[in-house]
Design a protein around this nucleic acid. Sequence first.
DNA 1: CTATTAATGTGCGTCGGCGTACATACAGTA
DNA 2: TACTGTATGTACGCCGACGCACATTAATAG
Lengths: 250, 250
Amino acid sequence: MLVDYRAPTVRAPVSKTHVAPAPAENSLLAALPRKDFELLEAFLEPVKLTFGEVIYGPGEPIQHVYFPTDSLVSLLTLAEGHQALEVGLVGREGMLGIPLALGVSDSPVRALIQGTGMALRMTAAHFSNELQLNALLQREVYRYTYELMVQMTQTAACNRFHRVEARLARWLLMTRDRVRSNQIHLTQELLANMLGVRRVGVTKAACDLRQRNLISYNRGQIQILDPQGLEQAACQCYQIVKDMHEVARA
Amino acid sequence: MLVDYRAPTVRAPVSKTHVAPAPAENSLLAALPRKDFELLEAFLEPVKLTFGEVIYGPGEPIQHVYFPTDSLVSLLTLAEGHQALEVGLVGREGMLGIPLALGVSDSPVRALIQGTGMALRMTAAHFSNELQLNALLQREVYRYTYELMVQMTQTAACNRFHRVEARLARWLLMTRDRVRSNQIHLTQELLANMLGVRRVGVTKAACDLRQRNLISYNRGQIQILDPQGLEQAACQCYQIVKDMHEVARA
DNA sequence: CTATTAATGTGCGTCGGCGTACATACAGTA
DNA sequence: TACTGTATGTACGCCGACGCACATTAATAG
């Protein structure tokens, strides 16, 4: 698969030679001082998360927390006689298993691997323990909890008010930011489940975005052609959450 | 105003004589051992919150945290060219100012007083400080943070999938649980803002519920006549969040 | 008691998304 | 090469909610 490592917003041109592939880091862990990270490292185990895998089921106990490095996970809720609905999207900027940090052992949502890739994981017991001991880890985890709440809030409003096409554009952009690639592997069927609409609704929205030369796609492979144009097509919700993220990290 | 102090689920009959009016407590604080509560008490100031008052604006710093006793507060988010949308409803079972517990000083949402009543409040500085010192307070605050996330999640799905009428029924029931009264003071206009629909939409839904003898209302006074029937009319979202609350407290 | 304002009720055309059914196109396998 | 299953595209009637305009009915003030 062709992978485009361009950063979401290009700042400085990077030499094409001697560039080690961007280290597959997790931002949350990366924000810790080296010393603190080394303390945790003993408990962290790299695992491959594969598309389609479900790491948490709603109401089920959380066995491990995960810090995605280049994988992508979506948080889904279910509702009375309807398909799933995505309430959060987690990539390298975050983690999975927040309830543990809040003293709860079960996940309220389903966590579905959306993009195959690696993550660092830790057992629930080790995490709870380390969190007690490590104030800086606490700081990062709680800050991300806040970010997740904001993302959920904005997503709720977005799902209520905005049209499928705008929401699709937003989803693609959010995914792009997290996997750092313009290539996204996902069928319209799955996409429909994220957005809480019919597959046909996605087809129509995608057709339209394609006609405008913003994206191209083929049987589960979606390519973002014009990120800026796509931002125009998306609702402001995209920018709002993104700005929040940057402010919160400042 | 007539107030009905029946508990949402009647467990044991209570003697009608010599019953002090149910102490206006906040469940979150009430869950603390007496000793811990007494330590906090010095910093808690009772305040009256009046309908229509806004205690937090989005992006504004949180000055105080609030523990409602018999007041009711709704958390609203705003979206690109639309009215507000409620993402959370907080009464005596919770608190306002969660971001502080997550290390963030600004509120992401607007907090609007929905039901006039009392709350205990504490300055942001005192709260942050006490939270550091008091592990049991932490436990309660984080548990409630979890509950709020679940509520937000369920509300998001509900707003996406369910009809206005069912959502209205749910809102009335949630409010009833929090204010412990079948009498709710709120115009359809405001209600429309909570549910993210037009005022006319609320009128139609309310008319229908009234025809079914589930509620009655008159210029801002809504009376729940048949709570059980109303539960039938509401979506399961109501029960789901309620059950979660009870499980989490077990 | 009348004027004014706030709250509620009704009607109507429009639109986005739903449910369903079916048609096409592509990929992998036999 | 033909077969099969998956992914995508198109069509059609329906319905809930929207936007808007306007009518009606309390409460309040002068």
